[in-house]
Design a protein around this nucleic acid. Structure first.
Lengths: 226, 226
DNA sequence: ATTATTTTTTAGGCTTGCCTAATCTTTATT
DNA sequence: AATAAAGATTAGGCAAGCCTAAAAAATAAT
């Protein structure tokens, strides 16, 4: 059985491999608020347990077993976030820390019951996909708002790596998951994007914010720019 | 801030003081599955933190601060049990272990939201009272089934210290919290009790089982024995 | 290519929370 | 009251996880 610290390390490695393709000792340490030396020892231990492949000085990869463990943690984390927001009325910027604790509770029955109770949601309040009990992700074709053609009709699908500050900013601008908009303009100068809701004022997002937003194209075809 | 182990010790001490009036080092150790020597050290540490009064060789008492901490743990435990049974469909004999983990999650907002979500229940699925956020218990006058006069009309209020085995036995006999019955007979020989539901066959409980059942008198007056 | 820098690993310590074994202290027994 | 038994505490160890400092390896810069 895994300790809490072991679970944290697996989750950190998995998250880093997801985005960057590599998970360095230092990066893992930063993410966990520990030191590289501690991480080295821990990764070695997890490698001995068969959860990772660790080539000293060359980084780590997760084994199938390690990946399954990571996905189960992601599943638990996102289901609890969904519970906190949908049922207990938390704001989406408040849930991370609590979910971080809840995800370590060990009970298969609990997590499967929770999923069912919530209606087996496929996406969490931030729009991130929730793996099913076999570790399979729901499929969906999304693209970064940054890469969206001008005039495209889109739906906000997810906020990637949303810090509390970013989520609060989106709250203030009135942007939420599932919201439908059109890409009205993009400023060459600073990369900022203007979004037009069906009704109401245009919303301007900086390039920095846009780079965190995953969107999916809606049925409506993109208009050519004018 | 308290560690998980510290919380476990406080809870054990509180539980022992509740029933027996005293909490010996050995009893605490048995309850936690550790050794008396470890408990001694831990209690001393908690005393240093101002949560207990520890007179070596003479036992411990909880300070106001310690008692508040214990009550908050009881509150969390019982609210989670209620959630598991009422919302996720767990059986009342399955919830203890999971609640044991959930009770250590730290978030005032979480527990208050959960309570509200559940309708601020005053009693958990075993009939045990749930302290409010200020540590106050709901009041109710109950008596052990063992001490109930013959002929009394009663309602099952709670199961005290119900092991999984006991709870399963009660399941099989069809006894549940809130059930209304009359005390139909008591056998001198073995102390067993016959209970008569409004409809259906008489249920016989051994003295050992009856000693775990807390009941409250219902409106109906007790008939004299015949 | 050699040196400098950055990154990773190893070595040695510290704290927490547990253990066993030995030493009190209190309580029971004779 | 003296001794035996039971219970509590202290002493010394051990594993987990973290740390700092030093050594080793990989990468970057001259």
């Amino acid at each position: 059985m895994l300790t809490r610290s072991e679970e944290d390390h697996i989750k950190a490695v998995h998250a880093l491999l997801e985005v960057g393709g590599s998970a360095s000792t230092t990066e893992v340490a930063e993410r966990l608020g520990t030191k590289a030396s501690s991480v080295t020892v821990m990764l070695k231990k997890l490698a001995d347990k068969g959860l990772m492949k660790h080539e000293p000085y060359y980084g780590v990869k997760l084994t199938a077993k390690g990946k399954a463990a990571a996905l189960m943690l992601v599943r638990k984390h996102r289901l609890w976030e969904t519970f906190l927001v949908d049922r207990l009325g938390f704001g989406w910027e408040e849930v991370h820390e609590v979910a971080e604790q809840l995800e370590h509770v060990r009970s298969t029955k609990l997590i499967d019951s929770l999923s069912e109770y919530l209606g087996n949601p496929a996406f969490d309040p931030h729009g991130d996909p929730i793996p099913d009990r076999n570790g399979r992700f729901p499929s969906r074709s999304t693209v970064l708002l940054t890469d969206c053609p001008l005039g495209a009709a889109i739906r906000i699908a997810a906020v990637q790596d949303g810090s509390d500050g970013l989520l609060q900013l989106l709250n203030r601008k009135g942007i939420g998951i599932g919201m439908e908009l059109a890409v009205a303009a993009r400023q060459e100068f600073d990369g900022s994007v203007d979004l037009q809701p069906a009704k109401g004022a245009t919303i301007t997002l900086s390039a920095m914010v846009a780079a965190h937003l995953l969107v999916e194209a809606t049925g409506t075809k993109a208009k050519s720019s004018h």
